[in-house]
Amino acid sequence: MEDIGNNVVKIEQVELLPVIMEKKNDDWRLAQICCAFRDGHYEVSYSFAKGYELTNYRLIVGKDETVASISRVYKSAILYENEMRELFGLGVEHIKVDYHDKLYRIDAETPFMEKEGK
């Protein structure tokens, strides 16, 4: 775990579930999950809020790697995780309610990744 400034803490894959569990037990609410793609890898940001506090955890995921779903801990993660997978093609494993890339009814596959091809 490493604080990289701007209220963001960088974590490793193995630390994800322990961190999530800790937040859950401490009554933090999941504010959002956001995926971004830059420099050939995904950046997944998990934001938690409690009262007016906000903490963000940043996970760096390689292009072909997958990330574990947190939807069994935080039910509200379902939408965010389905969204990430559909728009960015990030592999999220074992989402509780899997929309199979049909959350948004669009024809394009991973539309937010276009930039890299050009």
Binding site: A31, Q32, C34, A36, F37, R38, E43, S76, I78, L79
Partner: peptide
């Protein structure tokens, strides 16, 4: 969430709207 890279085009702009969070 805004992620910029020093050019005039941003890397990522993400909006999580309140309804998205309220659906669950």
């Amino acid at each position: 969430y805004v992620r910029a890279n020093g050019t005039k085009f941003l890397d990522r702009m993400r909006v999580r709207t309140p309804t998205f969070a309220n659906i669950p």
